[in-house]
Design a protein around this nucleic acid. Structure first.
Length: 375
RNA sequence: UCCCCUGUAGCUCAGCUGGCAGAGCAAGUGGCUGUUAACCACUGGGUCCGUGGUUCAAAUCCGCGCGGGGGAGCCA
């Protein structure tokens, strides 16, 4: 395009001597340090557009299937979610408390007890699942883990659907449909931005997304997965055996070498998974699933939920959990319990998958990570 | 939190077994040009991350701290 201007007015100056962005490629590491200016670059503009589209696609998927969007709380007053270290929320004056040398009196805290930022909306959304049938949450989630990797954030957005009268097979089918729907949406509505990522960020991206869209996800039980890994034990630093937690190297091997595409691993040993997962009849495993995809690894974790009160209480006892704080969660099993299942999908992990961006800090506008809360 | 790599001009980096701080791009000035990440010439630009140490002498070697990247763990 060419313009024949009749006049030119400078509305806001941008002195070239000090403006950090130059007419050349900058490293993502550098751009992270100027997160307030990076949306002006072609890459981060494309990321922002695709992030918006993916959020819309997610709502569209659930809306088409008559799911209800439930807003679960961000602040939680019970330390009972068990999905990692939590950020404490308080209005107590930490400085004067430290000077006084006295222990904190949480009855004087805002909520009258210790409170935290939520690490998951799942327990809360299960209550609406038992009322409305098909529900999902989408909101910010907080984990105070000191993890410094290209795939973890301290503040991230998570999508958690929960479906009633469903067991693991329905859950797996939902997860697969969901991923494919999102990839289709990206391919159909974000063509220009995808072409950019394919050319400049992740060559072969579009071909990969197209292949996954029309593929059938492989299924594999944990037990079969371990058998497969044991055949190639020499390739691993950590030798696989039944009962071991699958290491990153194992997961990558399964999805990238064995299956060469997405794979859903199911039925993990009960010792490896959370208390609320449905106990299988073998007495050793639970109805859990992890969806693994090449390059990203685990993108979804989910399970059927234990809906039988006595078995759920026994599982909590095995894991040394007190039942009292979970009284309302257990009420769901006391009053009209039904099989149900759900999963969690990290929105930024989806964004990494769909854009080809390597570092999760580059697919969220203002990343929060250990020692990182500028902007 | 553990392991490895790394921190030098606005950006990307070179700088060897210690001996005067460098390049490309960017910026400024001038020139040239229907240019597509334009071209030519000149000019300016540095707390070599911080701190302690070794040494006649440290960007360079050693200790500690902080930041960045990769891997692991935790997980989504």
């Amino acid at each position: 395009m060419e313009l024949k201007a009749s006049g030119l007015q400078i509305i806001g100056e941008s002195p070239a001597e000090t403006y950090p962005l130059q007419k050349k490629a900058h490293s993502f590491e550098f751009l992270r340090e100027i997160a307030h200016l990076r949306p002006r670059t072609n890459t981060f503009g494309a990321v922002a557009r695709m992030r918006s589209q993916m959020a819309f696609a997610m709502h569209s998927f659930f809306n088409e299937r008559s799911f209800q969007y439930v807003h679960t709380p961000i602040i939680t007053a019970s330390d009972c979610e068990g999905a990692g270290e939590m950020f404490q929320v308080t209005t107590l004056d930490i400085d004067s408390l430290a000077k006084s040398g006295k222990p904190a009196d949480y009855s004087k805290d805002f909520f009258g007890k210790k409170s935290y930022l939520s690490v998951s909306g799942q327990l809360n959304v299960e209550t609406y699942c038992m009322a409305l049938g098909k529900v999902y949450t989408f909101g910010p989630t907080f984990r105070a883990e000191n993890s410094n990797t290209p795939r973890h954030l301290a503040e991230f957005w998570m999508i958690e659907p929960e479906i009633a009268f469903a067991e693991l097979p329905e859950d797996m089918a939902l997860a697969e449909d969901f991923i494919k729907y999102l990839l289709s949406w990206a391919l159909d509505t974000c063509g220009e931005d995808l072409a950019f990522f394919d050319k400049r960020v992740q060559p072969g991206l579009i071909a990969t997304l197209e292949a996954v869209r029309s593929s059938v996800f492989a299924h594999m039980t944990y037990t079969d997965a371990v058998k497969e890994l044991e055949k190639h034990a020499d390739d691993f630093e950590f030798k696989p055996y039944w009962g071991c937690d699958l290491q990153t190297e194992h997961e990558r091997y399964l999805t990238e070498i064995v299956m060469k595409g997405p794979v859903i691993v199911t039925d993990y040993p009960k010792e490896l998974k959370a208390f609320y997962m449905r106990r299988n009849d073998d007495g050793k495993t639970v109805s859990a699933m992890d969806v693994l995809v090449p390059r990203i690894g685990e993108i979804i974790g989910g399970s059927a939920r234990e809906y039988r009160l006595d078995i759920l209480e026994a599982a909590m006892a095995e894991k040394g959990l007190e039942t009292a704080p979970y009284w309302w969660y257990l009420d769901l099993r006391r009053y009209g319990s039904a099989p149900h299942a759900g999963f969690g999908l990290g929105f930024e992990r989806l964004m990494r998958y769909v854009t080809g961006m390597e570092n999760i800090r580059d697919v969220i506008p203002f990343p929060r990570a250990p020692k990182q809360a500028e902007f």
